Structures are given as structure tokens and as C-alpha cells.
Simulated assay, not measured.
Amino acid sequence: MSVDAQPVSELPDPRNFGLPVVAEDELPEELRTLVARVHDLVDAVAHTEADTSELARASAAVHELTERLNVKRRDVGAMLERPRADGGTDYQTLTNVVSGVSNPAAVPLVLEETEDGVRSEFTLNGTYQGPPGLVHGGWIAALLDQALGSASAAAGMVGLTANLDVNYRNPTPLNAPLEITARVTGAERRKVHVSGEIRHNGEVTAEGTAIMVRLVAPS
């Protein structure tokens, strides 16, 4: 059965996918701080030249902290509930690996709505390295996928990626300011067409197009 033919009753709630919801103002600041510090830790581990005794002590400390945090945890993911400027509500996956605010592996990506879509400025450190000094192509695709999906959602058409095409135009550097933009270019029944770009110093380094499939068919 095609996605267009799938009964709406079998689809998850388009607002929160049926997951537990955490209000943005209820997210502990201590968790945000912990996420930032673990993000820095990942970068430090990837690039450290500490001696073996220091590595052993650090490993034991991280193991102890992991055990402490695992005492109480969610079995499934959750959604972050955010108020919109227009009085509505946005939902974002709390542990999203690209932009989740509770995921230390996530990129420092905060997508903001614009007149025609979404936009963000960010910088990627060596954690996201592919070729020497450059961002890994897989992360570039993931960033575009996130922005394209967010643009569709910002336009009121929440959906899932059915197709994603990425063209790599120029190398995307690490440790340099980057900009990502995305917008809806058309819609047909449950299909939403979106496009976006990543830029460095105004030059496009990668561009992507996608077809998002809305979770609920338009009335």
C-alpha cells in the first residue's frame, strides 16, 4: 500500500508522534549544561594525545558517570514542546542526532523560521570530520535533511522524508561559520517538495532537495 493510501488512523500523531512530551521550560538547565560538556568531551577524546595513565583515569570516570546516569532513563525518545511566536506549538525530537537539545552528538543547529522557510548559522568542530579539515558528507546530508524537514513542518506540513537528493558543490570546512537555509517549493496531496543549501562565506557548498510525505493528508 502506498503512503498516500495509508489510513490516517495508522499514522502517528503528527504533532508528537505519540511520544512523551517535555515542555521547553521544564527541561533542566543542568541537562543543557551536561549536554554541552559531553559534546566538548567527545571532541576532546577524538583529538587527545594524553598518556595512557590519564586515558585510563578518564575512562574509569566516564564509566562511573554513565552508570549513574543510567539509573533513571527513558525507554523511548521524547518530544520537546516549544511555543511559537504566533501562539502555536512546535514539537522537536529531544534526542534527535542532528539537532536534539539533549543529545551531545547533535550539531549546534538552531533552526529559526524566516519569511520563506528556515535558517541557521553554526560551526562544526572536528567531531564531524570526514576528509582532513572538512565536514563528513554524511553529516552534510543529515543537516540538509533536518533543515528540509523543518521547513516543511514550519509551513504546517509535518512529514517524513521519502526522497533526498544531495549535490556537493564545494568542500565544507570545519571550524568555520556555515549557514543553512531551506524552504517549501511546492505541494501535491501529501507530498511536499522542499529545497535547501549550506553556504560558507556566501558560497554554496552543498544543496539538497527532498520530497516529504505529510503524516496527515490535507482536507
Results as ranks from 00 to 15, higher is better:
A44L: 10
A46G: 14
E49K: 06
E49D: 14
A50P: 06
D51N: 15
T52E: 15
T52M: 09
S53C: 01
E54T: 15
E54Y: 12
L55T: 04
A56S: 06
R57Q: 15
A58T: 12
S59P: 02
S59N: 02
A60V: 08
H63A: 15
E64I: 08
E64C: 03
L65V: 14
L65R: 14
R73W: 07
R73H: 14
R74E: 11
V76F: 07
A78N: 00
M79H: 01
M79E: 05
E81T: 14
E81R: 11
E81W: 09
R82N: 08
R82E: 09
P83K: 13
A85T: 12
D86I: 05
G87V: 10
T89F: 04
T93Q: 06
L94S: 05
S99V: 00
V101N: 02
S102L: 04
P104G: 09
A105K: 03
A105T: 10
A106N: 05
L109D: 02
V110D: 11
L111C: 04
L111F: 02
L111D: 00
E112I: 00
D116M: 03
D116P: 00
G117A: 07
V118T: 06
R119K: 11
R119F: 02
S120P: 00
S120Q: 06
E121W: 00
T123I: 04
L124M: 12
N125C: 04
G126H: 12
T127K: 14
Y128R: 00
Q129V: 07
G130D: 03
